[in-house]
Nucleic acid binder design. Sequence first.
DNA 1: GTCTATATTGTGATAGAC
DNA 2: GTCTATCACAATATAGAC
Lengths: 168, 168
Amino acid sequence: MSRKEQIVDVARQLLEADGPGGVTMRAIADRLEIRAPSLYKHIADKHELEVALIARGFAEQAEAFTAAISNTTEPVAAIAHSYRSWALANPHLYALMTSNPLPRNDLPAGLEIAAAAPLVEAVHGNTDRARALWAFAHGMVSLELAKRFPPDADLDTAWATGLRSLAS
Amino acid sequence: MSRKEQIVDVARQLLEADGPGGVTMRAIADRLEIRAPSLYKHIADKHELEVALIARGFAEQAEAFTAAISNTTEPVAAIAHSYRSWALANPHLYALMTSNPLPRNDLPAGLEIAAAAPLVEAVHGNTDRARALWAFAHGMVSLELAKRFPPDADLDTAWATGLRSLAS
DNA sequence: GTCTATATTGTGATAGAC
DNA sequence: GTCTATCACAATATAGAC
């Protein structure tokens, strides 16, 4: 594993462990047992690190959603479940991927489309329905991650209610 | 207007003008033409400032949504339109209100419920449907604010598609 | 209620030696 | 490719004088 890959690995561990504020050049260097300035021999700046993390997230999502639609009679529900699971398992990376404009020019081509493809296929190419479903899923997930629902809210039922209406 | 009210006012102006990073004690003090340490004679700390901003946001939303359901035959659509308008007009305050757990213990009682009441009434008390609608609206709005939809996406149609399914 | 002075902590990033 | 030394900057907050 190259030094650069190690750096991205450590950055991701720090991101999920300590949140975005925990991803500092010093913290990354500490875990690699080198000094912070040495990192700049391998990456140009912190932005490059963020782009690499986002790219990994999309690749993982594409894989998860593709797996979800194999062997199911309800692809939309299966993708929704997979979407929620991935976000809850990778909350800070999920936030990084959804809270700011995508650095589309710096990202490997096709990543965004590959992650979206399973859903678009599940709704037979109806992009408006795909966007409505994505918005619903993103809203549910981001409010859950932000702990913004009332503490006693039954989220499973809210998911089922929304999906039943939107999936058709 | 008390000094404290002036401080909250200025904080809100800075929040929407420069984003959350622009709301510093120094910047607030500069606009009031005093020194930053003087602010602490009027507020305990920055957290108190954030709570005051969030409280204002909820009060404004409650007013906007209540106005939206008067004189309409489609209350859910009217609230959705109002929700989107308010968020687009106050993007950074909206983010402050939705990206973190509510400081419910520090907020005036009833504010959250008052803002949610028009929607709950519009769906005849069906809380699962209300949550699904809220999630959809929040997802649409937050992705729009984050510029996460593809540049050519037709958001009006996505809104209409989602609301048609969810409003029933 | 305002001021000056300061503590404390933290950040990304560069220069230049080895 | 790693190091030491350092720059440049910014943040919240407190002490104590007036």
